[in-house]
């Protein structure tokens, strides 16, 4: 039995907002980076579902590109977190508030 497109999109919306809430509320940069990954992957799920719905294979290729970019983003993010940690000996986004807005 085929699953209705609305289910995919609802799930993807829920995952996206879990990601947004994680970015806004959590103070540990590692958790924030994970939340950002959630946002990207929610978009991936939506793109694949829409790709199936429209029969347009461009969506599949798009998802591969997004997965690659997300991996690069995580690598750079972790590298910078390590660098900040070396200097500050702790990682907490509230403590990294030595900068004005």
């Amino acid at each position: 039995m085929p699953v209705d497109i609305a289910n995919y999109i609802s799930l993807s919306t829920v995952i996206f907002f879990i990601g947004v809430i994680g970015v806004v509320t959590r103070r540990n940069p590692l958790i924030v980076l994970m939340s950002i990954e959630l946002m990207f992957n929610a978009a991936n799920l939506a793109i694949v579902a829409f790709s199936k719905l429209w029969g347009n294979n461009a969506g599949h290729i798009f998802v591969f590109l997004v997965v690659t970019v997300a991996a690069a983003e995580a690598a750079i993010g972790l590298a910078i977190v390590v660098q900040v940690f070396r200097r500050a000996k702790h990682v907490d986004l509230d403590e990294v508030a030595g900068l004005r807005g």
């Binding site: 793109i47 719905l53 429209w54 969506g59």
Partner: peptide, 11 residues
């Protein structure tokens, strides 16, 4: 972008 793709079926 995902929603735009979903609304139009094209990238």
């Amino acid at each position: 972008m995902a929603l735009l793709f979903g609304a139009t079926g094209s990238v």
